[in-house]
Design a protein around this nucleic acid. Structure first.
Length: 431
RNA sequence: GGGCAGUUACCGAAGUGGACAAACGGGACUGACUGUAAAUCAGUUGGCUUACGCCUUCGGAGGUUCGAAUCCUCCACUGCCCA
């Protein structure tokens, strides 16, 4: 696997080859990239305490830029998050305090540590747009920025137009201004760092070009905008979600085990595509994996590499090995192969609930166990699953709703492995 | 400020006094088939209960009624039109 890009290859070509490019302004970015170090920026919302896997697409694009010697700038949207992008449908925007944003910024930095280097000649820079947006006066904003925007042009942008036509929601003046504010960011970064490239999601195109236009009008400079594609899945399921919940990069919000499992379960048809987009594996290596995958799809070689690499990038190699091992026990040999050491690995990977040894001695009603372990939201739901034949205790189907779990079932005298459905595990562990 | 329309479960959307825990679709869950895949088929999808059943829910608060998601009053929010 080639970790470092061939510096002679143009970064734009690389992005294209890997399916990381959707739209690009016709402003000569490939030539500019070949001509020397560029500052490339991408903004991230600060409304959630963590990035999610969907955010990794622009992150990968930034990482490729950095590996070609360019400097990434991460903008935490402390200011813009308070306004709300009209392309997001949610109306309510939490007003975050400066402390919260600072905390989120720190987390984002940690989460990106596996992707971007914050040291060296191409060190990534992390800034908060509240630092400059909150200092701007209304008069300055209207005179220096607003003057360059035509309402007619703004109204024509997809993000605004769709809301104007939407009888249900409409659009507030605040949200309407979003693109102007984002363009202000670009202008500021251009003034401060001579930043000339902005990256964003496909739906950000209108906002990115607003910045390009502003810099052209206000500074008579030509800068670049590039969007990464919206990642889709072959089955039509939303990318980056399971059961409607986002896959977060924060291990407290999505466990590394769950993250690993998410990638292991990727549809065959998407594997090669995702390997290109989300890993740094060489295209040759990916082609090899693709051939192996075709020869024997049931081995999931592609998914295994995808899951391992992603877990490693996000949580580090040790964690990746641990969750890989845990997954191998659960979906390979099963409980028969479980050793006391492997059990400890499982406990750190699978959702685990500690119980009193005495409670286990007395016996725990199985339905209660399902609820306390968090495997099911209510006893009714637990009963339903059981009646449908979806409950397994230590990998053996369990059909007695009145049943009680005792030390007799416990592995090594202290652990009971619960499973609902095909692959949702949880562990009860006596102290 | 005035007028009109709307707010139903995870989402969309029916329901306009009793047969409503609330149609239908999507999503999700479970099973069969499989490879921890896809597709397909079947079932499930408010809480408690072995069950009879009981309890809570149709934007919020009151009211009318034997009985309210449905009628009335006030309030909040959203959209459209007028000023």
């Amino acid at each position: 696997m080639s970790k470092h890009a061939d510096p002679k290859t143009n970064v734009v070509t690389v992005l294209q080859e890997r399916g990381l490019m959707s739209q690009l302004t016709e402003s000569g970015l490939p030539e500019a990239a070949a001509g020397g170090q560029l500052y490339v920026y991408c903004g991230f919302d600060a409304t959630a305490p963590s990035l999610q896997v969907g955010n990794l697409v622009p992150v990968m694009a930034l990482a490729h830029f950095q590996r070609h010697g360019h400097r990434p700038i991460i903008v935490v949207g402390g200011g813009t998050s308070m306004i709300g992008d009209p392309s997001g449908k949610s109306v309510e925007r939490p007003l975050l305090t400066a402390e919260q944003i600072a905390e989120y910024a720190g987390r984002i930095r940690d989460q990106l540590a596996g992707y971007l280097s914050f040291e060296g000649p191409a060190a990534a820079i992390l800034v908060n747009n509240a630092d400059w947006l909150s200092k701007m006066t209304l008069i300055e904003y209207l005179r220096d920025i607003g003057k360059h925007f035509s309402v007619n042009a703004m109204s024509a942008k997809e993000s605004v137009r769709s809301r104007l036509e939407d009888r249900e929601h409409g659009i507030s003046y605040t949200e309407f201004s979003y693109m102007v504010v984002q363009a202000t960011d670009f202008l500021h970064l251009n003034d401060t760092y001579n930043c000339t490239v902005q990256i964003g999601g496909h739906d950000q195109w209108g906002n990115l070009t607003a910045g390009v236009d502003l810099i052209r009008k206000a500074r008579e400079k030509h800068v670049h905008a590039l969007t990464v594609p919206l990642i889709t899945s072959a089955s039509g399921a939303k990318f980056g979600k399971t059961a409607g919940n986002a896959i977060w990069l924060d291990p407290a919000m999505t466990t590394p085990y769950a993250l690993y499992q998410y990638w292991i379960n990727i549809d065959d048809r998407d594997v090669a595509h995702y390997l290109k987009v989300f890993t740094f594996q060489s295209l040759d290596d990916i082609a090899t994996l693709e051939r192996e995958q075709e020869a024997d799809p049931s081995k999931r070689v592609g998914q295994r590499v995808l899951a391992f690499e992603l877990t490693k990038l996000i949580h580090g190699e040790d964690t990746a090995r641990a969750v890989e091992a845990a997954s191998r026990v659960l979906f390979g040999g099963g409980v028969d192969e479980l050793t006391p050491e492997a059990l400890m690995h499982l406990a750190s990977a699978v959702p685990t609930v500690e119980i009193e040894a005495a409670a286990l001695e007395r016996g725990i009603p199985v339905l209660d166990a399902l609820v306390t372990s968090g495997a099911q939201p209510s006893k009714g739901a637990a009963r339903r699953v059981l009646q449908q034949g979806g409950l397994y205790v230590n990998d053996a189907r369990w059909s007695d709703a009145e049943g009680v779990l005792t030390r007799e079932q416990a592995l090594f005298g202290r652990a009971i492995l619960l499973r609902t459905g095909k692959n949702k595990y949880s562990l009860l562990l006596a102290k």
